[in-house]
């Protein structure tokens, strides 16, 4: 009986494995989010870690890095480098206004057993078709659609770069994300493929948890229209995250895992 229970636990663990694989938190950490002057730059760390915001696990790949300029056009990320625990890049803020800077990139994750050995795959749809046998034993496939981003403003905040792409899970700010102040609640809206994401659990964790005994995690559920409010416990950098599991992968019998992360700075 006990063994059976263990087996069931093991099976359950396998089922949630793709989620567990994402247990490390992804984030982009900018050197500043509110800037003045004629020629400001931000430098950014990109990592996947357990603690926020410390580099303790892996550098984040910057393949899907996009810079959306205040006028909506694509900007450039300079000085990209990958270290052991973090990747870094710089963005020169050539236009006044608000930038949206993020790493996106969809793909397929698969696990199966071949000749008694566990096998794993992570890559594009094309590579999946090529590399994963269609009749693989115990095949489990997920379509992942992650977005990790932050916002930075030179001068006065603008809205153009905040418009959603209507792909996957996104946050549409109601309160401007570079106008966050401790003591003032902020409101945002979660959207999935451009439609309000209702009854979604959003997690907000303040950075600096190495120096705290408790994580200080807040769980906030979105309303029917996808909106939610955050009451900041104080100033600092915050990690905001949510994820959705559904069947809209575009591939039969493959579930989608859409996830969203934003790093938000709250000033005193």
């Amino acid at each position: 009986m006990k063994l059976r229970l263990l087996q069931r636990v093991a099976l359950a663990a396998m089922l949630v494995a793709p989620v567990a694989a994402h247990a490390h938190r992804s984030w982009l950490l900018p050197s500043a989010t509110v800037l003045s002057g004629e020629d400001p730059w931000v430098t950014v760390d990109a990592a996947r870690s357990n603690e926020l915001f410390y580099f303790d696990h892996n550098a984040m790949a910057l393949d899907g890095l996009t810079v959306t300029m205040p006028d909506g056009t694509a900007g450039e990320a300079a000085n990209q480098a990958r270290g052991r625990y973090r990747s870094t890049f710089d963005v020169r803020l050539t236009q006044p206004g608000t930038y949206r800077i993020g790493v996106t990139g969809d793909g397929l994750t698969a696990r199966w057993t071949q000749d008694g050995q566990p096998r794993r795959f992570r890559g594009t749809r094309e590579a999946f078709a090529r590399d994963v046998p269609a009749n693989a034993e115990g095949l489990r496939v997920f379509y992942t659609q992650p977005r990790v981003e932050f916002f930075v403003t030179r001068g006065a905040p603008t809205d153009r770069a905040l418009q959603p792409q209507n792909e996957g899970l996104e946050m549409v700010p109601i309160t401007h994300p570079n106008d966050l102040v401790a003591g003032e609640p902020a409101r945002f809206r979660m959207v999935l493929d451009g439609r309000p994401a209702a009854n979604l659990d959003v997690t907000v964790i303040p950075g600096g948890n190495r120096y705290r005994d408790q994580r200080g995690e807040m769980k906030i559920r979105t309303a029917e229209d996808g909106t939610f409010a955050v009451n900041w416990p104080g100033p600092g950098m915050f990690w905001l995250s949510a994820s959705v599991r559904d069947a809209n992968s575009g591939i039969p019998n493959v579930q989608r895992s859409a996830s969203y992360v934003a790093t938000l700075e709250v000033l005193p």
């Binding site: 509110v34 800037l35 003045s36 002057g37 004629e38 020629d39 400001p40």
Partner: peptide
């Protein structure tokens, strides 16, 4: 030079 003093206005 280059109005760099504006960098700290924020």
């Amino acid at each position: 030079r280059n109005r760099e003093g504006e960098k700290w206005l924020k």
